[in-house]
Design a protein around this nucleic acid. Structure first.
Lengths: 185, 185
DNA sequence: AAACTCATGTAAGCTGTTACATGATTAC
DNA sequence: GTAATCATGTAACAGCTTACATGAGTTT
């Protein structure tokens, strides 16, 4: 894989010809949650891949509008397949500021800790709901795996939301318990 | 937050003075899974933070070795607390090549799809096992939240491993089912 | 004395984001 | 006619990784 954007562009062009704009739009509605891409990556990549012979231009019009559509060449399809079946361990990177905050939560008092955890849970629940609304009707012939990855997102954020909920309960119990003790003594 | 490394450095110096080397080592054993940091970030950041008065140098020796330890100033502690309680939505970014491959898995045949899913499940299970072995004895007085984030990692990778296992079963059933039909017809 | 670990630091380079420029077409 | 959307592109910058340089102390 030359750069991080290569497989997305290749993959997006496999099912049908698309323009750079199309790719960006589709990425934002689909892979963005686990693999984002910007115009600054996509357009230069389309040129590189054309030069490398992995994709080719199809048509330059839609309506009267200027438009450059690309499709995979057989060489491009082969490259995509190679990447899919490659043996190298797949990259897996996470940047989760909420988790980092939790890591350092000892620096604040119990109430603030609770607020922090609650916020994190809410975030995951919001993402969860948003993912659930993505619901294109499965048609025969349409690729099935994209929808599957949506389910993965649901599973992940659901697990996280529930985990945070557990921590929340623990903290609530401690705060209340602590109050009781103080009242009782 | 100035840069991504700021809160880690600040947070790592809160519990006790550390050197840049210490910070890097500790990050690699703890936050790396959701927030990585390299020397190229840490050392320059230590200078910036010193100049800004958020941290200060403590001692310059340990054994006979050259060593620069830093600790939080009160201003630094305040900055850390502000970041912890900030209202801005926490950054959450994922780069998951395995998931991207699954997204495009329609491009390969059933057997390769299965192999791909199996590999992904194994990856998560491996990470899961590694996380489970991180088990520092909880001592009173030692911060508790770091250990909690380890549990979060366990929860997340467990959820993903199980989700992939489900997909795997589905694919296996389909492949076997397809065979049966072919054999029966 | 060789090898390893502790320890600090930087330069080059790669990747990716953001913001902007440009202009055509369509919807109101 | 004006606002929104479609569409392509780039330049500047921010952020981070990698590799290297350097050297002291420790272990074998």
């Amino acid at each position: 894989m030359l750069t991080g954007v290569t497989p997305v562009v290749l993959g997006m062009l496999r099912s049908k010809p698309r323009s750079g704009y199309d790719i960006k739009t589709f990425v934002d509605r689909s892979t963005r949650f686990f693999w984002a891409a910007s115009y600054g990556q996509i357009y230069p990549e389309l040129r590189r891949l054309t030069k490398a012979g992995l994709i080719e231009t199809v048509s330059r019009a839609r309506g009267g509008r200027r438009r450059a559509e690309y499709r995979l060449t057989s060489k491009g399809e082969e490259t995509l397949r190679e990447w899919l079946l490659a043996d190298e361990p797949a990259l897996h990177e996470l940047r989760d500021e909420g988790m980092l905050k939790l890591f350092f939560a000892d620096a604040v008092g119990p109430d603030d800790q609770l607020a922090l955890v609650r916020k994190a849970r809410l975030r995951h629940e919001t993402t969860l709901e948003r993912l659930k609304t993505v619901n294109p009707p499965p048609r025969p012939g349409r690729p099935r795996f994209p929808l599957l990855t949506r389910d993965a997102g649901v599973a992940m954020h659901d697990a996280m939301a529930k985990w945070y909920a557990g921590v929340e309960q623990m903290l609530v119990a401690e705060i209340e318990g602590g109050d009781d003790v103080r009242v009782a003594s």
